[in-house]
Nucleic acid binder design. Structure first.
Length: 586
RNA sequence: GCGCCUGUAGCUCAGCUGGAUAGAGCGCUGCCCUCCGGAGGCAGAGGUCAGGGGUUCGAAUCCCUUCAGGCGCGCCA
């Protein structure tokens, strides 16, 4: 409907130009907006205000002329000029009734568009270190990234969903060493477990699976490893130095091949667990991209080489530094340490170089907000590589804080005392988790009210929306039970029976849905959709409470059942984009 | 100390990228109702948009600044 009105305005402006009432050299940007207040009609246009200066006329005067030049349309009841020069359109009821057959025709496709024209977009999200199960913080990234990806797909982008697996680096070594030590304990060794090792129960599970599969193949004397270890923290030492030595001694005691075997078993175990967790959460990926592969394929070396050749890398103190300050970063960053190892950042440069080489029109990274300091350096790297940094959008997702009975749920990643995503899903269900996670824009801290998420009441927005869907289905069941007929062909000719204000409001909101999906997708803000669905459900329940659908009169019943079905379709479509089910009964 | 994010009703949050009298849900107050699915309907109170400057026809929205909270400032990942 917006494009239709834009066309009318355009026609009017062209006419005014023809009459020399407007200069020819203007480039008017016509924007039609939904009004906030019914008194202002259904749509408003501020073109008279924006063009007033160029036309050298008062906004209201110009508005008069624009309105005078508007072509007639049966979809418009009246046009008013109001306030400082707004042109307000009052649409006829018929204009909004038209949405019902459109919804029926397009079905599940209603709200989708080809705006993105199949352009390739990558969404990388979660990408948690495979050193333990996903926790509730990762859950928000998962729900958020999945929703953004699905929204972009809905408006016609070719979306590639990717998980970056940090299968290299020190954290993974710590996990491997932790697995190994637990394994030794299972073998009967008396082990002093390092403070900085991974303490979670899953480490025991990994160790047990290794023990089950390989028996005592990798058993070593604890003293082989414990000898000459620098003291751990409780003994007054440095826990970091201690764990590094534990890793080194473990590697030495096992030999590279055996160490790698334990390392890979731990990695696989956790990655399988994460995959399973996310799949159960309705979050699917097109690709699991291995960080290690970047080293193996030489991508990291190639990236650094490119930076060296273009003069953006220099050597200092035995290390190689990327001169990111040339591109707006606060300080230069090491890419190769003095021990010859490349840094995590070097992998990240290579990874983003690879993303660009794969030809994505747009790359979206969903990161935890604690990584915000990395944005400037990654963008700097893209610039240095000659890529367009604006192609990269980093969505920084703030942490979610759980509340139970009004109290903050305490969480700490130390000693494995955190709430896992799996626990949360079990407690509140997948639907509520997916919905609550995306209810707030990403940069907003999320207060996740567990009691509300679980509650079967209208206070729970997710429940309220699902309930609307279930109610529609219930009406359809009763239609059948009562032996009443519904003739959709006829109904589409009888939509003019939808004269109640509640029905008008519903029709208007149904017609908004494609705009909402588009806005949510382009701004990467799924919360826009959750708010919309809440409003739509509210309109539906209000209507439901005020009127009988299953009336005796055929034409009115047909029209109302048709509207009912249109609501069901839109609610189901909207929930579907958020990964939330639309139950027929609850 | 520097950088990023946040600050809107009692609470949790919207506010369509500068528009009209700043909205919703919950909570609160009063009245009505109890009908397809757990209740609902109507009305009302509640705001210095953190404070202060600036930009312009017009600012919650853009710029500067102060305050408060969160996060980040490794040759860790």
């Amino acid at each position: 409907m917006k494009p239709f009105l834009e066309e009318l305005i355009e026609t009017a402006l062209a006419f005014l130009q023809q009459q020399s009432l407007l200069p020819d050299n203007i480039e008017p940007e016509i924007r039609i907006e939904r009004t906030r207040d019914r008194k202002h009609g259904d749509f408003a246009c501020n073109i008279a205000m924006t063009l007033a200066k160029a036309a050298r006329r008062k906004p209201r005067e110009l508005a008069e002329q624009v309105v005078g030049a508007l072509p007639e349309s049966h979809l418009i009841d009246k046009v008013e000029i109001a306030g400082p020069g707004f042109i307000n359109f009052f649409m006829s009821p018929a204009a909004f009734q038209e949405i019902v057959p459109v919804i029926f025709d397009e079905g599940e496709g209603f709200g989708r568009s080809d705006l993105g024209a199949g352009k390739p977009v990558q969404v990388e999200f979660v990408s948690a270190n495979p050193t333990g199960p996903l926790h509730v913080g990762h859950g928000r990234g998962a729900a958020y990234g999945a929703a953004v990806a699905d929204l972009l797909a809905a408006v016609g982008y070719d979306v590639h969903r990717e998980y970056y697996v940090n299968d290299a680096g020190r954290q993974m070594d710590i996990l491997a060493a932790s697995d190994f030590l637990r394994y030794l304990e299972l073998c009967g060794e008396e082990v002093t477990f390092p403070t900085n090792g991974y303490q979670g129960d899953y480490v025991w599970d990994i160790a047990a699976s290794v023990h089950r599969k390989l028996g005592e193949k990798h058993r070593r004397d604890w003293s082989d490893i414990a000898n000459y270890l620098p003291p751990d923290e409780p003994a007054g030492g440095d826990k970091e130095a201690h764990i590094d030595a534990v890793i080194a001694h473990s590697k030495k005691a096992l030999g590279t091949g055996n160490y790698r075997e334990i390392f890979d078993r731990g990695l696989k175990y956790i990655l399988d667990d994460i995959r399973d967790d996310l799949a159960s959460f309705g979050v699917r990926y097109d690709e699991w991209f291995s960080e290690r592969s970047l080293t193996d394929t030489g991508a990291v070396d190639r990236a650094i080489e490119r930076l060296k050749l273009s003069g953006h890398v220099y050597e200092q103190g035995g290390a190689f530094w990327f001169r990111s300050t040339d591109f707006g970063d606060e300080k230069d960053r090491v890419v190769i340490r003095d021990n010859g190892q490349h840094t995590y950042f070097a992998s990240d440069i290579a990874y983003h170089m690879d993303k660009m080489e794969r030809g994505f029109e747009r790359v979206i990274d969903v990161w935890g907000a604690d990584h915000h300091g990395y944005v400037p350096r990654v963008k700097a790297a893209l610039m240095a590589l000659g890529d367009e940094p604006s192609k990269l959008d980093v969505l920084l997702v703030q942490f979610a804080i759980l509340y139970r009975s009004g109290e903050k749920v305490q969480m700490s990643t130390r000693s494995g005392e955190f709430v896992t995503l799996r626990q949360l899903r079990k407690e509140v269900g997948n639907d509520a988790a997916r919905f609550f996670y995306v209810m707030r824009k990403c940069e907003q801290h999320l207060d996740f009210d567990l009691d509300l998420a679980k509650s079967q009441s209208n206070d729970n927005p997710m429940y309220y929306i699902q309930y609307a869907h279930a109610r529609v289905c219930s009406v359809m069941r009763q239609l059948e039970e009562k032996g009443l007929a519904y003739d959709q062909e006829a109904a589409l000719q009888q939509l003019d029976r939808l004269t109640e204000s509640h029905e008008q409001a519903l029709l208007v909101n149904l017609s908004r849905y494609p705009e909402v999906v588009e806005a949510a997708a382009l701004s990467h803000e799924p919360h826009v959709l959750t708010h919309y669905l809440r409003e739509l459900a509210n309109d539906f329940h209000t209507w439901y409470n005020a009127h009988q659908f299953l009336v005796d009169e055929d034409s009115l019943r047909n029209a109302r059942v048709a509207l009912n079905l249109a609501v069901r379709q839109v609610v189901a479509n909207g929930l579907g984009l958020l990964g939330v089910s639309a139950p027929e009964s609850m």
